[in-house]
């Protein structure tokens, strides 16, 4: 039974990272109907930038983390300004292709600068297991979970209570209406990319601290995808729940399937299988909005 609880808690903790990263994905989709296939690469580059800052500036992981968020925001604004704004009136498919291109460029940069070997953050927290009573969890997972919660609650409040949050919700609700009241859409898109870059970088730094850094971190983009689809593509709440579900499925599936079959690596496949089954039953995802119809 302890085995089960261990996997479950691990799943929730890993899932919270998925939820956070998926938030960026959903946001860009809501604002501009673009599927951002560079999300995983943003996560990867965020982790590497943070690592570089830690070693170059000697400011510790938390300080470097905050600085990374700033740099990632700047990068997001540059991507919007230099690449995406030129694609403003292009077909959505072309923009999606461009995001794939951005991803390839970022991955190449990482390979060029840091190489394919696994790098590690300096150990900055004493990795003692915390006893939750029924299960013991590594303290780094607790940190990661709390960080994810803070980010998601922060963005939740931002969307609900700030003027800029309202503008972003408005643009997501109707681009045409947003233009007609005078919203410059490119600014909303830029902001969506900034948020996406921030949550990705946060996910990257957390994952990097847990498992080390390789260019393979970019695969997170694909691993988050089941959460995004399961959540309904355009529902932030749905994606948050779906992220945790996917994390749990991955851990439980991985753990038990390995025991039963003797094959490792089934954990990563399990969410996709569950995803296919769920989408048979509910094609719009868990909480994907059906369009509000005019009466």
């Amino acid at each position: 039974m302890d085995y089960f609880w261990g996997l479950l808690i691990n799943g929730i903790l890993v899932g919270s990272i998925y939820s956070m990263v998926a938030l960026g994905f959903v946001l860009i989709y809501k604002a501009s109907k673009v599927l951002n296939f560079a999300q995983g690469e943003l996560l990867m580059i965020g982790a590497y930038i943070c690592l570089e800052l830690v070693y170059q500036l000697q400011i510790g992981v938390p300080g470097a983390f905050l600085l990374t968020l700033v740099l990632m925001s700047v990068m997001a604004i540059l991507i919007e300004r230099l690449v995406l704004r030129r694609m403003m009136n292009a077909p959505v498919m072309s923009v999606v292709m461009v995001t794939i291109g951005i991803g390839i460029i970022l991955r190449s940069i990482v390979l060029l600068v840091w190489g394919p070997i696994t790098l590690h953050f300096p150990a900055w927290i004493r990795d003692v297991p915390v006893d939750l009573g029924f299960v013991r969890v590594s303290v780094i997972y607790i940190y990661s979970f709390v960080t994810c919660l803070i980010f998601m609650a922060g963005f939740g409040l931002f969307f609900r209570y700030t003027r800029t949050g309202l503008v972003m919700r408005a643009a997501a609700s109707s681009q045409v209406a947003a233009r007609s009241v005078g919203v410059p859409l490119h600014r909303v898109f830029a902001l969506a990319w900034v948020v996406a870059a921030i949550v990705s970088a946060a996910g990257g730094v957390i994952t990097g601290n847990i498992a080390g850094l390789t260019p393979e971190l970019s695969a997170y983009g694909v691993r988050v995808f089941p959460a995004v689809i399961l959540g309904g593509l355009d529902s932030i709440v749905g994606t948050t729940i779906a992220g945790v579900i996917i994390g749990v499925i991955e851990e439980l599936g991985g753990g038990y399937l390995r025991d039963w079959t003797g094959l490792s690596g089934l954990g990563t496949v399990a969410p996709f299988i569950v995803l296919i089954i769920i989408l048979w039953i509910r094609p719009q995802g868990l909480m994907g909005t059906k369009e509000v119809e005019r009466l």
């Binding site: 919700r169 609700s173 209406a177 005078g182 369009e291 509000v292 005019r294």
Partner: peptide
């Protein structure tokens, strides 16, 4: 210069209050 479009483009997911707030965006 404000254009009220044909087909009543409101923000369907926002409340009436939020729609009016958005009108004052500029």
């Amino acid at each position: 210069l404000v254009h009220v479009l044909e087909g009543r483009f409101v923000f369907p997911d926002l409340s009436v209050y939020e729609n009016l707030l958005m009108g004052a965006y500029t």
